[in-house]
């Protein structure tokens, strides 16, 4: 307080001589601006560190490791295909479950809910978003996995076992479990952004369609149509989160280096293999290959987030605060 006071009197005196006060203003603004610039520095440093760490692997293995199917550190062979497939399959399964449910809930919150119930559901969504990933992991491992193993997966095998996607043995842990856990984790993102996007669509759209005799569902359809780019953005944002989600997936996916061919198979994702093997990586090339996987994750999520934000900004005009939601 004291130093500010003394500078303050100087500032007051400067009413007579405007120049020095002007300079304090510039310094203040400059400091704030520098703090804002830290964001660029951080993104640069993350990119720089991942590139430097992955250099060895990029040089000796190249990018072909993304579609090479064997990951055998003992034989110094690094192919990330099992993890790429694990990441894609769990993420898309999660989207398949979470998008319809999330958009439905968003419609409920934006159009149907009474104020009180709506507040309860939003509150629950916020709490869900605040639960640490590791907690989803132990819930998936100790609660969901036994249910899947004893009930859901045997049923799937019995009735749909002829489809390769549902064949295999009921382990409880694996792609299916990871997909469900991921869906639970990304639903809040989809709900909160879709809701904001829906609320940002003009009310006149709904009024016009209702006036033309549309049912409530049909008028909601009109609003959804206008909100489509934003909802697409929400889905991409959620996909980005699912791709990079680590701890929960690590606990429920089974962590094998084989390529999963069925939803019931155990597997691993790009993020989970980093979490699992990083501290065990004994040779420089092993470590470098893991960092290269991180680099791929970084680039993919940067591009997807960039795209998703643009879509959401487009609909809401930059008013939505998606930093907290994601």
């Amino acid at each position: 307080m004291t130093p500010e006071r003394s500078v303050g009197t100087a500032g007051a005196m400067s009413g007579l001589r405007p120049r020095p006060a002007f300079r304090v203003d510039d310094v203040y603004r400059g400091l704030l601006m520098a703090a804002a610039g830290v964001v660029f520095l951080i993104v640069f440093l993350i990119a720089f560190e991942s590139f430097m760490g992955a250099r060895l692997s990029m040089k000796t293995i190249g990018w072909s490791f993304l579609w090479s199917g064997e990951w055998d550190p003992v034989a110094d062979h690094y192919g990330a295909l099992p993890y790429v497939i694990g990441t894609l399959s769990t993420s898309f399964l999660a989207l398949l479950l979470a998008v319809p449910l999330g958009v439905g809930s968003a419609v409920y919150l934006a159009e149907l809910a009474s104020r009180r119930l709506g507040a309860v559901v939003s509150f629950v969504m916020e709490l869900l978003a605040a639960i640490p990933s590791i907690v989803f992991g132990i819930w998936g491992f100790f609660v969901l996995a036994p249910v899947l193993r004893t009930t859901v997966e045997p049923w799937l095998i019995e009735h749909f076992g002829f489809i390769p996607l549902f064949s295999g043995a009921p382990f409880g842990i694996g792609i299916l479990n990871a997909g469900i856990i991921l869906a639970i984790m990304i639903v809040p993102t989809i709900v909160s952004i879709s809701r904001e996007v829906l609320l940002a669509t003009p009310k006149s759209l709904r009024e016009a369609s209702l006036a033309l005799g549309a049912t409530q569902a049909e008028s909601i359809g009109v609003a959804l149509d206008a909100a489509k780019p934003g909802i697409l953005g929400a889905a991409i944002l959620a996909l980005g989160r699912a791709l990079g989600e680590t701890m929960a997936v690590t606990m429920v996916i089974g962590n094998t280096n084989r390529i999963p061919t069925s939803l019931l198979d155990p597997g691993a994702t790009m993020a989970s293999v980093i979490a699992n093997e990083f501290t065990e990586a004994t040779s420089p090339i092993y470590l470098s290959a893991l960092i290269q996987i991180a680099l791929v994750l970084f680039l993919v999520t940067i591009v997807m987030n960039g795209l998703a934000r643009l879509l959401v900004y487009w609909v809401t005009g930059g008013r939505s605060d998606t930093a907290g939601a994601a």
């Binding site: 660029f40 944002l237 990079g244 930093a323």
Partner: peptide, 12 residues
């Protein structure tokens, strides 16, 4: 950039 930063996976 801030929004994009918030989307970078924590493992990265």
């Amino acid at each position: 950039t801030t929004d994009v930063l918030s989307g970078i996976p924590s493992i990265v």
